[in-house]
């Protein structure tokens, strides 16, 4: 079974036409991979479907806008994968 990181890296590669080998756990989806907010909706859609969750994009964006979180916290790949794992675990709890 592939890791959450591998699964979302594949989603991003296919959704945004980015070479898979460019996407590492340290990649920042916005700053490094150049994914904009509209493209990220397609990624969120695919992640929601793949993991059976609802990625709380509005909450995350609000936290970033309010200065309570950095974009790195949610949009660096390894951190995004960790948040997805938390959401999946919370769903199953």
């Amino acid at each position: 079974m592939s890791s959450t990181f591998d699964q979302i890296a594949t989603i991003i590669a296919e959704t945004c036409d980015i070479p898979r080998d460019r996407i590492t756990p340290e990649s920042h989806a916005i700053d490094d991979l150049g994914i904009d907010s509209l493209d990220f909706l397609d990624i969120a859609f695919a992640i929601d479907k793949e993991f059976g969750i609802k990625l709380p994009l509005e909450k995350w964006t609000q936290e970033v806008n309010d200065g309570k979180a950095t974009t790195e916290e949610y949009f660096v790949m390894k951190n995004l994968a960790a948040h997805i794992d938390e959401l999946v675990a919370a769903k199953g709890a």
Binding site: F45, K54, L55, P56, K59
Partner: peptide, 9 residues
């Protein structure tokens, strides 16, 4: 098609 957080299809 889908209801996401702050978006829908």
């Amino acid at each position: 098609v889908h209801e996401g957080s702050g978006f829908a299809m």
